[in-house]
C-alpha cells in the first residue's frame, strides 16, 4: 500500500534531518543527540502556521526515522507549542494524543520496512529468510495490525471533534511496536545484536532503554 502524501512528507523530513544533522547516523552508535536543537528546528520547519494542519502527517513522517524517544519528545513539544495558539486550545488534548500516536505509527512503519528489507536480504538454507513460511506469516500478521492501527489513527485525525483516548492508542500501538522490534532483532540475527545496527538501536530504545 502506498500513501503518496505521507511518502512525500517523509522525504521532506529525511532531507531536513540530513541537511541539518549530517552526523545523525552516529546517534545510533551512542553519540549524544542534540535533542533541544533538533526539537526547535523541527518546530520551526514543520509547525509553521501555514502548514499547521499538516503537522500530524509531518509527525508521522518524522516517526519513520530510527529515533523514537527523540521523536516522542518532539511530538510533546509540538503539543505544547500548539497549546499557545488560542484556536487550538479546545481540542489540544485530543491533538496531543494523535500527535504522539502519529510518531508511534511512523516508528512502527519504519521498523516494519527495515524488518522486511532484512528478511529479504538475509539467506537461510539457500533462500531469503522471507521465503520461510513462518517468517512470511509473521510479517503478514504484523502488517495487518499495522494497517488496523493506521486506519484507526486516520479515522481519529479526520474526526477531531470526537475525543481520542490515549489508552486506546497505547493499548494498540505499544504492543505492536514491541512485537515489531522484537521480531526485527530476532530476524536480523547476530548482526542485529551489535551496537549500531537498526535492530539493536530500536530494541534499546523500546525495550531496555
Amino acid at each position: 500500500m502506498i500513501n503518496t502524501s505521507v511518502d512525500l512528507m517523509t522525504l521532506d523530513v529525511r532531507h531536513w534531518l540530513k541537511s541539518n544533522w549530517p552526523d545523525h547516523p552516529q546517534w545510533m552508535q551512542g553519540k549524544e543527540i542534540p535533542e533541544k536543537a533538533v526539537l526547535q528546528s523541527f518546530i520551526a520547519e514543520f509547525a509553521k502556521p501555514s502548514i499547521k494542519d499538516q503537522l500530524h502527517h509531518h509527525l508521522r513522517a518524522l516517526g519513520r526515522t530510527p529515533f523514537l524517544q527523540l521523536n516522542r519528545a518532539i511530538a510533546v513539544a509540538c503539543c505544547a507549542a500548539n497549546a499557545k495558539s488560542k484556536e487550538f486550545v479546545h481540542i489540544q488534548s485530543n491533538q496531543s494524543v494523535l500527535m504522539i500516536a502519529a510518531v508511534d505509527l511512523g516508528f512502527a512503519e519504519y521498523v516494519f520496512t527495515e524488518l522486511l528489507a532484512e528478511v529479504r536480504q538475509r539467506q537461510t538454507f539457500g533462500v531469503p529468510l522471507v521465503r520461510n513460511q513462518h517468517v512470511e506469516f509473521t510479517l503478514a500478521e504484523l502488517q495487518a495490525k499495522l494497517f488496523a492501527f493506521e486506519a484507526l489513527w486516520e479515522l481519529a485525525v479526520e474526526n477531531p471533534e470526537l475525543p481520542a483516548n490515549l489508552e486506546l492508542f497505547q493499548s494498540l500501538g505499544l504492543p505492536l511496536i514491541h512485537k515489531l522490534v522484537d521480531q526485527y532483532l530476532q530476524f536480523a540475527g547476530g548482526r542485529g545484536y551489535l551496537k549500531g545496527h537498526g535492530a539493536e538501536f530500536a530494541f534499546r530504545q523500546v525495550v531496555v532503554g
Partner: peptide, 13 residues
Amino acid sequence: IAEWQASRALTYK
C-alpha cells in the same frame, strides 16, 4: 475494545 475500534476502522477503510 481498542482492537474492535481498530478492526472496525480498517474494515471501513
